[in-house]
């Protein structure tokens, strides 16, 4: 048990710190915290031009949607970064249990994603003069953590694909773009075609974004329990599916000797 916890916490922390090995902290922080603020400003101003929603709509939507960058990229980098550093085989040859090994690496990513959402929301709200009641802030934090959890689960599925796909950065960016369109971060879901709403409903972040907007408008966590339950259930399904998929892909990689050459 102690061994598994060490793999979970120490392995996860070491892996997360390794992200700072391939990208210096200043650059990583700029990418994670400055870029989402510009994304929020971009869509808020487009919204003003199109005379659609208020700024709060875009601040909440994009702050939560941007957790996909740390969560999706972070989880896929768990595989492709190890491959780039030529340590993937060493990681996978260890007798460590795969549950603490993979989920331990997901844990810091969840916290990182939530931090990105909180900071980008806070700064953008100040810049655009978006007022949210202080009593709503803890609930918004809970929504951000839940969004980050479900998106990290989605990232775990993509990490499995990363065991076979060479152009992981292209895949990550495409996934980010799809989440931007389908989650309702900038266009209300009911304004999208039915088939897009159906896809959006099965994607991470969609329910969290809706819940975040309702909470910012004054709803309590109890009022958005249904949405949060959906988001949590989706996150759990993605997390379990991602874990199973990683195990499957690892086995396939061993069988086909494609761990390093894919």
């Amino acid at each position: 048990m102690t061994y598994a916890l060490r793999v979970f916490f120490v392995g996860g922390l070491t892996s997360y710190r390794a992200l700072f090995g391939w990208l210096s902290p200043s650059i990583l922080l700029t990418t994670l915290f400055a870029t989402p603020i510009f994304q929020i400003l971009l869509f808020a101003y487009i919204g003003r031009t199109a005379k659609l929603e208020n700024d709060e709509f875009y601040v909440i939507g994009n702050a939560i949607q941007y957790v996909s960058i740390p969560c999706v990229f972070g989880m896929v980098q768990m595989i492709s970064g190890e491959r780039y550093a030529q340590t993937l085989a060493f990681v996978l040859v260890t007798p460590a249990g795969r549950l603490p090994l993979f989920l331990g690496r997901a844990f810091p990513v969840v916290l990182n994603g939530a931090a990105v959402a909180v900071v980008s929301f806070g700064v953008a709200a100040l810049l655009l003069d978006v007022g949210v009641r202080p009593s709503s802030l803890p609930s918004l934090l809970a929504v951000a953590v839940l969004a980050s959890f479900s998106c990290t689960g989605f990232g775990l599925v993509l990490a499995g694909i990363g065991l076979r796909v060479r152009e992981t950065s292209v895949m990550n960016n495409i996934v980010f773009g799809l989440l931007l369109i389908f989650t309702g971060s900038n266009v209300r879901l009911d304004r999208l075609p039915d088939w897009m709403q159906a896809i959006g409903g099965s994607m991470p972040l969609t329910h969290a974004i809706t819940a975040g907007r309702e909470v910012a408008d004054g709803a309590s966590l109890a009022d958005v329990t249904g949405l949060l339950a959906w988001e949590a259930a989706l996150g759990a399904v993605y997390m379990l599916a991602g874990y199973a998929f990683l195990i499957f892909m690892e086995t396939q990689s061993r069988r086909r000797a494609t761990l390093e050459i894919s």
């Binding site: 659609l52 960016n173 495409i174 773009g177 799809l178 931007l180 369109i181 266009v187 304004r191």
Partner: peptide, 18 residues
């Protein structure tokens, strides 16, 4: 080619709804 298309799609939906 694909990356700006995602943003263009969102922008088209936004302006069309406007």
């Amino acid at each position: 080619v694909l990356w700006p298309l995602f943003f263009a799609t969102v922008a088209f939906f936004m302006f069309r709804n406007g």
